[in-house]
Deep mutational scan, measured.
Amino acid sequence: NCLEGLIFVITGVLESIERDEAKSLIERYGGKVTGNVSKKTNYLVMGRDSGQSKSDKAAALGTKIIDEDGLLNLI
């Protein structure tokens, strides 16, 4: 459970895995996936064609922004 207690938001199109697979992977390792960035969000996983508003909010809140490889490296 290397992601225990961590909260993730996924945005954009992921290249190597589907969004549902990424969500399942995060949950399997103890993390939680939500739909919107908040002060409780630990990581924003940004894929291709992701919206600017979520990354702006993450930056404003100090949320770590990672890509798909960054997510896989956490596991």
Rank of each mutant, 00 (worst) to 15 (best):
N1M: 07
N1H: 02
C2H: 14
C2F: 14
L3S: 00
L3F: 10
L3E: 03
E4S: 08
E4Q: 11
E4R: 09
E4D: 08
E4L: 01
E4Y: 07
G5R: 01
G5K: 04
G5M: 02
G5L: 03
L6V: 05
I7H: 14
F8Q: 00
F8S: 02
F8G: 03
F8I: 02
F8W: 01
V9I: 01
V9T: 13
V9D: 06
V9S: 12
V9R: 04
I10T: 04
T11Q: 10
T11C: 09
G12T: 00
G12C: 02
G12D: 08
G12Y: 01
V13P: 13
V13T: 15
V13F: 11
V13C: 11
V13E: 15
V13K: 15
L14E: 05
L14Q: 04
L14V: 03
L14C: 05
E15W: 04
E15K: 14
E15L: 06
E15C: 07
E15N: 09
E15H: 09
E15F: 05
S16L: 09
S16I: 08
S16P: 07
S16V: 08
I17M: 15
E18W: 00
E18A: 14
E18P: 15
E18D: 14
E18F: 00
E18I: 00
E18L: 01
E18N: 14
R19Q: 11
R19L: 13
R19A: 11
R19M: 14
D20P: 10
D20T: 12
D20Q: 11
E21P: 03
E21Y: 08
A22Y: 09
A22D: 00
A22W: 05
A22C: 13
A22V: 13
A22Q: 04
K23V: 14
K23E: 11
K23Y: 08
S24K: 14
L25M: 12
I26F: 01
E27R: 09
E27Q: 07
E27M: 07
E27P: 00
R28K: 12
R28H: 13
R28T: 09
R28W: 05
R28P: 02
R28C: 05
Y29I: 02
Y29Q: 07
Y29H: 14
G30C: 03
G30S: 03
G30V: 11
G31T: 02
G31V: 00
G31N: 00
G31L: 00
G31Q: 00
G31H: 00
V33L: 08
T34V: 15
T34A: 14
G35I: 14
G35Y: 10
G35L: 13
G35K: 15
N36G: 07
N36A: 11
N36W: 06
N36L: 10
V37R: 00
V37D: 01
V37G: 01
S38H: 04
S38T: 14
S38Y: 04
S38Q: 04
S38R: 02
K39P: 14
K39V: 09
K40S: 12
K40E: 14
K40G: 09
K40V: 08
T41Y: 05
T41A: 06
T41C: 07
N42I: 01
Y43C: 13
Y43N: 02
L44M: 08
L44I: 14
V45P: 02
V45F: 05
V45Q: 00
M46N: 04
M46H: 04
M46Y: 02
R48N: 08
R48H: 07
R48Q: 06
R48C: 05
D49R: 12
D49W: 07
D49S: 11
D49Y: 11
D49L: 08
S50I: 05
S50K: 09
S50Y: 14
S50A: 15
G51W: 09
G51M: 13
G51C: 15
G51K: 14
G51H: 15
G51L: 13
G51P: 14
Q52E: 10
Q52R: 14
Q52K: 14
Q52C: 12
Q52M: 12
Q52P: 13
Q52V: 11
S53P: 08
S53W: 10
S53I: 12
S53E: 15
S53T: 12
S53A: 13
S55C: 15
S55V: 15
S55F: 15
K57D: 11
K57H: 10
K57Y: 11
K57R: 12
A58S: 06
A58C: 06
A58T: 06
A58M: 07
A58N: 04
A59F: 13
A59Y: 11
A59G: 07
A59P: 05
A59I: 14
A60I: 07
A60R: 14
A60M: 12
G62T: 03
G62A: 05
T63H: 05
T63I: 15
T63D: 00
K64N: 08
K64H: 10
K64F: 01
K64P: 10
I65D: 04
I65Q: 03
I65L: 06
I65P: 04
I66T: 06
D67N: 13
D67K: 05
D67V: 01
D67H: 09
D67M: 02
D67A: 03
D67G: 07
E68V: 14
E68N: 04
E68M: 15
D69H: 13
D69M: 10
D69G: 12
D69W: 11
D69V: 13
G70P: 00
G70E: 10
G70F: 03
G70A: 08
L71C: 01
L71P: 03
L72Y: 12
L72M: 12
L72D: 04
L72E: 05
N73M: 06
N73W: 04
N73A: 11
N73P: 01
L74H: 05
L74K: 03
L74Y: 00
L74A: 02
L74F: 03
I75L: 13
I75A: 01
I75S: 00
I75P: 04
I75W: 02
I75T: 03
I75N: 02
I75E: 00
